[in-house]
Write a protein that binds this DNA or RNA. Structure first.
Lengths: 219, 219, 219, 219
DNA sequence: GATGAATGAGGGTTCATTCAT
DNA sequence: TATGAATGAACCCTCATTCAT
């Protein structure tokens, strides 16, 4: 066992710097698949190819692991979205449409939608996690959409409406699709075609937002 | 009553016919509060004022208890909604509006919204329960809303649209509000005013559905 | 609800005197089918068509119920066997053969063999029951067989052998057949044909007992 | 060792490779003592000096623990017996005699007889375990004894008899002795002297098997 | 006599977390 | 740094026995 051995770094040996990311990936997979409470750290470690103890070297506990997953994935995707909106130069209709479709592409269609679903599903049982997610993800994304609506209204492209609630109403069908994908859809029940669904949604939404000669909101 | 002994409180009090309902009520409370997996039958029994074993006299196991809760609450509410739609005589706009507001009143504002939330949240981990809920609740409610849209379209009150997806899009904001109420809202985060939210939603929706001279769906 | 009603004894109403026997029958069925520990008093009561509480009116507890089952069945069968031996007038070979075949007929082939099996199986966990069974059944039946061997030896029909142990050796194949019937045989594993088995056993046994010119027990 | 603290007993002691065997030993003790159903895994763990959870690190569940006990003990003993028979060169009478005495020595006199007893006692309630035991133990041991009888018959040392049933008849007294030891005998009732019993049995058996001028099987 | 609702002490199993090596 | 053996508090479910009616 000569000295050289200890220096040789075979390329199949995982560099220790890679460990956290491997754990985050494994954790993302499992949190998405089973939810927060139902994910066993045993399984996370196994999927990352390390022992359970190792997991605790990198993450204080289950909660911190989850927060790290959120930070590493959703928060960075959010920054990208903020950038997209900030630099958009076309019409607000196009911006809203593009925003929603990109949102679905970057989050909805990927595993990350599972995190949104998970938070809606379990935040009630884990208030600390909920608080964290609210501050890091929800507030920022809501601010972003509200600013987008303001842009449309101030440029005369959208009717003047209750921006805060419209934000939620606009967000709802996308969130719902995400949730569906990870609930009944995952049981092979009640499949939804995302493209057709989104098209239908945008059709209704853009019609609803459009400035009409006489908005018939009376009833 | 000569001797103090006769006053001795019995180890248990016979409630007979009232028990099942008391247990269903307790179970509803806790399933709503904590979700399916996180609800302990111990706690359900305790809240109903009985011992754990007693619960098993009335319900075979956790799953059957949950199904009974759904049947006793959601399924019966659904029947009422079907009745409401079947006998409505006014305009389809009013019907849709009334349907949604009543839905919120009878389900959304009550505890029952917690069951809808729970199913979205946990159906992935409990496929048997998911299947049951899909058959007893989801299919029926979707059929109901689709029939409502058909009525509006056939009477020329709504634009001809993709009914199946529109159903989902329409349902989404209400479901989202229900979920919100039992997730972030319950942590006192991001409160939503249901009436303002619903008004905003209906404003957008009814505008979106209205027949326009030139539907600007092009983009 | 006139007085006459209370006096009328519809013939479908079980007379209270029949209750104990019905319970004993149900208990026999279930003890035989599942064993002592695994038999639930719930099930015994249900099979007898009464409530669980009623069972406790007639039998102090599970143990007393079991003892009553033994008394009502095995002990009376034993008395009959004693009678058979006492009044037999033919050869001892024929007596032994007849005794064993009758034993199988009256006990082995019926449910009662299940009780013998049960006692061998569970007496270790229920010493009180074991003691009772030993006194009421085992000692008496051993005494009977030993007397039968003595008869054969004293009449010069059997070799002079160790009667106490021969008793056990003779009893073993029959007991084994009973146990088998209620263990592996009941799982449809390893079926045994009782008549062929007994014939083979008697062939070996009577040959083994027979007085030979030179008993080759040396080895 | 300067400070008392270093002497503090760790919450648990790492035993690693020794654990499985310790657990198997503890499990054997308790299964033999109480049977399958009545053995609590709590107690097995406690006897092995570990917590209940630890047991599940090594064995998937109670059934697998039991199977492991059988494999580690009976199956290996059986292999040894097969070897003994295969290499025996003397007379068949001696072989049969030796086989039975060794069987008693290696299994009957040790705890392992308790496993045989347990299976006879509880296989009816645990069909999966029964099937496993039948395949791994019973079929093999029956095949072994039948081959032994065939050897004797083909060499003209035993009368030509029904081998399959004779196998069972031969096995019965030994099994019975095992059962007795773990049932009434363990309650200090009806003690049997194993050597005298076996001697008596072999005397009868070898006489019964022997080739006689005129086998008087008529009756 | 008869009922059956109620009990409560477990039994098997799971899993986040700890810590000696 | 990495391991993985060990823990122990829960959780779901069972059942002999009791006792008010």
């Amino acid at each position: 066992m000569p000295v050289a051995d200890t220096k040789a770094k075979p390329r199949w040996e995982r560099r220790k710097d890679a460990r956290p990311q491997e754990l985050l990936d494994a954790a993302l997979d499992l949190f998405v698949e089973r939810g927060y409470a139902a994910t066993r750290l045993d399984d996370v470690a196994a999927r990352a190819g390390v022992s359970k103890g190792t997991l605790y070297l990198y993450f204080e506990n289950k909660e911190e692991l989850f927060k790290a997953v959120v930070r590493a994935n959703l928060v960075s995707a959010l920054a990208e979205a903020e950038d997209y909106v900030a630099h958009y130069t076309g019409s607000s209709r196009e911006l809203l449409r593009g925003f929603i479709l990109r949102w679905w592409e970057r989050i909805g269609e990927t595993q990350l939608s599972g995190i949104s679903k998970l938070m809606m599903a379990e935040s009630g049982n884990f208030p600390d996690v909920a608080r964290f997610y609210h501050e890091e993800v929800i507030q920022r994304s809501h601010a972003l959409i509200i600013s987008l609506l303001e842009r449309g209204i101030s440029r005369g492209e959208f009717r003047p409406i209750d921006k805060v609630n419209a934000n939620l109403v606009i967000v709802a069908p996308v969130l719902m699709l995400m949730m569906w994908k990870h609930s009944f859809h995952s049981c092979r029940l009640e499949p939804i075609s995302a493209p057709a669904y989104l098209e239908c949604f945008l059709d209704l939404l853009l019609n609803g937002l459009q400035v009409t000669p006489a908005s018939p909101t009376t009833h």
